[in-house]
Write a protein that binds this DNA or RNA. Sequence first.
RNA 1: GGAGGAAUGGCUGAGUGGUUGAAAGCGCACGAUUCGAAAUCGUGUGGGCCGAAAGGUCUCGGGGGUUCGAAUCCCUCUUCCUCCGCCA
Length: 423
Amino acid sequence: MLDIRFIRDHGDAVKTAMANRNADTDIDAVLALDDRRRAILAEAEELKAERNRVSKSIGQMIKEGGDPEAVKAQVREMGDKISAFDEQLREIDAQLRESLLYIPNMPSESTPVGKDENDNPVVRTFGEKKSFDFEPQAHWDLGEALGLFDFERGAKIAGSGFPLFTGKGARLERALIQFMLDLHTEEHGYTEIAPPFLCNETAMTGTGQLPKFAEDMYTIPVDGLYPIPTAEVPVTNLYGNEILDQALPILHAAYTPCFRREAGAAGKDTRGLLRVHQFDKVELVKFTTPETSAEEHEKLTADAEKVLQKLGLHYRTIELCTGDLGFSAAKCYDIELWAPAQDKWLEVSSCSNFGEYQARRANIRYRNEEGKPGFVHTINGSGVALPRLVIAIMENNQQADGSIDLPEALWPYMGGLRRLEKS
RNA sequence: GGAGGAAUGGCUGAGUGGUUGAAAGCGCACGAUUCGAAAUCGUGUGGGCCGAAAGGUCUCGGGGGUUCGAAUCCCUCUUCCUCCGCCA
């Protein structure tokens, strides 16, 4: 959420930023609401000050044996007026907050201005495209043949898009999760979190999934809970409504399953693991001061990339332009893996710096050098998401006979197994 | 699921209707003392909103109510603790 005072003082900059984002927002309406709010607030508070004064004098009067009835009546009348003002304020506050919740973050100064994904610059590339002396197979064919997953039965018990892994496929999921968590906790300094997989509306609003993206979420209406679409939600909201007294930055890594309805992408990428309703992911989350957030964002992106380097996978890192930037992000790098049988890049991580946008929504603060509370900056990114990582491992490391060589980094996590082949 | 108890500032903990935003202690910050430190003494020390500031207002788990006035009384919700039941 943006600071209403910032919008008030930098209306034009905000409008430009929203235009760069292709965001449909009515900043003038928000400013008008803000004006009205302050006018009414001033009047209401003046009246309250008066009431408090007179009320106290009643106490005195009674002590001195006077008759306070006339004054009481007067104050009661003031109270009625105040109630009316408060009622108006409640309404305006709710409207204002609702409006602010629908305004996306300001892109950072350094975010390139652009229209859509075609304007996203490639920042760096690691490795290169593997060449095959045979026609590489798609992961769904490889996996089916090797008995790594059984999507038909997954669909039977849950629905299409709910993958089901079997045997070595299930083991590979577990191995990757453990490999990534070990890397981030032992080498990159993150503290592991095992959070709830369901979150309430407050948490979902804090990170920006609600209210705008409700249709992308699964819901459990009877309990008011949502299966999390990313560990970002529970881990960021860990510190909601707190003033942190521990040293920043705080670094957390968390494995969770993620649940996404993919409502806007129905019918797209329906085969295999390209786009699924449930997937595993290791997420990295940082809480920093404004001074260090840019640097910590770069480091977090590097931490995510390290996973792919260790697995020897060809990837590229792109920076999202203003037109392609996520709702809550100020700056974002996407990491994409090359999948030869798909003949395209697959996004496995979005590393975003949210500035104080999420912190303001979730009310996460720290004490600055003056000891005053200020909003932290939050940063997060996948480190990384499993399905497309599995696709890349399978499709890049496949052999002519349909077996798959496992990256060396995974051998210890697979109980020494070096290759997936027909048993 | 049933029956009880609890929720106050960074922490411990007073406070059952009137200048209480809240005693006291601890902690923390600054100052004095000291060659320096400890100890000691003094001063200060929650947060939101409005305001250029002075100041005002709101806030004692959340919401609602009674009252001229609520941390204090009433209703309700949430969370935690204890016991019973059920259960991975």
